[in-house]
């Protein structure tokens, strides 16, 4: 196991400074400020449409930032596992080929795999319990198996910050346990894990930090203090449809 277990000795925290992300000028994430420490395991939770995926997209550098800033992240520090819908499952490549794209940032356009990288790929595939599936085409995989192979790709990317968007959708309990084990290892080795999920029990059991989002930040801090009944109720209440007649926001626009 030489992969995904390297410690990151340098301190690197992520700052969200008064961050606003918009969809056609309507805020999807509104004036959120938070400091995420290196090695934190943060759950991002909130109702549908609360801006969770938008936030992760912005952290991965895929969305333009409307206002405020994100500090401490660059494309070469982030491994991002988006929701599966963006992946073309019909494309004719094998599990091994999909997983090995995790080394793209290292190998670039031409460099070929060396022996140890070849072994790393094998290790990553075993680590997610897919040994024997290397030569299977990805369109023959089940949803859970595909998700496992995407986790293997994240392992190979070997980045200090890992963004997971609803990684456990439609996943059986065995796979859930296996993948959680992987995340625990990342956490132990001081990688920052930020994950969107709706499973409150899971968060309470595993994630030390929680960001409760309903466009605005309802609460950020230790999970026990954030996932209270009042806060959850507040998130539900706070959340409403876009106001078509909303005026320009003046908060923090000095």
């Amino acid at each position: 196991m030489g992969i995904g277990v390297r410690n990151y000795p340098f301190v690197m925290s992520i700052q969200l400074n008064n961050l606003t992300l918009t969809y056609e000028r309507h805020p999807a994430v509104h004036h959120v400020t938070a400091t995420i420490g290196q090695g934190d395991w943060l759950a991002v939770v909130g109702p549908n449409g609360a801006g969770k995926s938008t936030l992760l997209n912005a952290m991965a550098g895929l969305t333009t930032i409307d206002d405020g800033s994100i500090e401490g992240l660059s494309p070469n520090t982030v491994a991002y596992l988006p929701q599966q819908t963006q992946l073309d499952r019909c494309f004719p490549i094998t599990v091994f080929e999909l997983v090995v794209t995790g080394l793209w940032a290292k190998l670039g356009f031409f460099e070929s795999l060396n022996k140890s990288q070849y072994e790393q790929c094998g290790d990553a595939i075993s680590a997610v319990g897919l040994q024997g599936f290397e030569r299977r085409m990805i369109n023959t995989l089940s949803g859970g198996q595909l998700q496992r192979s995407l986790f293997a790709r994240v392992l190979l990317q070997d980045q200090p910050v890992i963004l997971l968007d609803e990684p456990f959708n439609a996943i059986d309990t065995k796979t859930l346990a296996d993948l959680t084990q992987l995340i625990k290892q990342w956490h132990q080795h001081k990688r920052t894990v930020i994950m969107v999920t709706h499973d409150l029990d899971y968060i309470q059991e595993h994630c030390p930090q929680t960001l409760l989002l309903a466009r605005d930040c309802i609460g950020y801090g230790a999970t026990k203090e954030i996932l209270t009944r009042e806060n959850l109720e507040k998130a539900r209440q706070h959340f409403e449809a876009f106001d078509k007649r909303a005026n320009s926001c003046v908060q923090g626009a000095a």
Binding site: V78, Q86, D88, W104, F109
Partner: peptide
């Protein structure tokens, strides 16, 4: 390489 990755998973390559 980038073309294959772009076809399979465009957001992966973009980030």
């Amino acid at each position: 390489r980038p073309l294959v990755i772009e076809c399979v998973d465009p957001s992966f390559l973009r980030c």
